[in-house]
Simulated scan of single mutants.
Amino acid sequence: MFEKDEWTQQELYKNTKELQKKNIKVILIDTILKPIENIETIVYNPFEMLTMPKGSVFVFYCDTGKTTKSRLEFYKNKFPDYKCISLRGGRGYWRPNYQLLEELDKNV
């Protein structure tokens, strides 16, 4: 889950669901003042972010994902008690109607 520095939208949903079972919070961080539809985000604010429970996962996004990926080491140094991930493709790749569906049991 944390082997990569960036998550796709699908990985974000899937990993958020898994981490919620372990009481680990995943927060989508808006670095460009353009909120994403259909998901809760907070604007990049280090003071507010430091009030989040330690061990939380911060998923940063920009327009294309390139800027947040290049700044990831900065974020990791600034927030050492948190996991920092970049959203692959950023806001431009986001699919507002995407849903993570449970796999149906196969009739065998």
Rank of each mutant, 00 (worst) to 15 (best):
F2V: 04
E3K: 10
E3Y: 03
K4T: 09
D5I: 15
E6W: 03
T8E: 04
T8M: 02
Q9S: 07
Q10C: 08
E11F: 10
Y13G: 05
Y13R: 02
K14F: 13
K14Y: 11
K14V: 09
N15T: 05
N15W: 01
N15Q: 10
T16G: 11
T16D: 05
K17F: 14
E18M: 13
E18A: 15
L19A: 10
L19M: 02
Q20K: 04
Q20P: 06
Q20E: 15
K21N: 07
K22H: 14
N23Y: 08
I24K: 02
V26F: 03
V26K: 06
I27N: 07
L28N: 03
L28P: 12
I29L: 11
T31D: 00
T31G: 09
I32S: 10
I32F: 08
L33E: 08
L33P: 01
P35W: 03
I36G: 05
E37H: 01
E37G: 04
E37S: 13
E37P: 01
E37Y: 05
N38W: 00
I39C: 12
I39M: 09
I39S: 05
I39Y: 12
E40Q: 03
T41G: 09
I42M: 07
I42E: 06
V43Q: 11
Y44K: 08
F47K: 01
F47M: 04
E48I: 05
E48R: 02
E48S: 06
M49S: 10
M52L: 10
M52F: 13
P53W: 04
G55Y: 00
G55A: 07
S56A: 08
S56V: 02
V57P: 14
Y61Q: 00
Y61C: 15
Y61G: 14
C62G: 12
D63K: 00
D63M: 04
D63I: 06
D63C: 14
D63F: 07
T64W: 01
K66T: 12
K66S: 15
K66E: 06
K66G: 13
T67P: 00
T67W: 11
T67C: 03
K69G: 13
K69H: 09
R71L: 03
R71M: 02
R71F: 02
L72V: 04
L72F: 00
L72Y: 01
E73I: 07
K76T: 08
K76C: 04
N77F: 00
N77D: 15
K78F: 01
F79R: 13
P80H: 04
Y82D: 09
K83H: 15
C84T: 12
C84V: 12
C84R: 14
C84S: 08
L87R: 11
L87T: 10
L87M: 12
R88P: 15
R88Q: 08
R88K: 09
G89Y: 03
G89V: 02
G90D: 05
G90R: 08
G90T: 06
R91P: 13
R91I: 07
R91K: 10
G92V: 00
G92H: 12
W94E: 12
W94D: 10
W94P: 11
W94Q: 08
W94M: 10
R95G: 03
R95Q: 13
P96R: 00
N97F: 09
N97M: 06
Y98V: 03
Y98E: 08
Y98R: 05
Y98I: 09
Q99D: 10
L100S: 06
L101T: 11
E102T: 04
E102I: 09
L104K: 07
D105L: 15
D105W: 09
K106R: 09
N107E: 14
N107L: 04
V108C: 08
V108W: 02
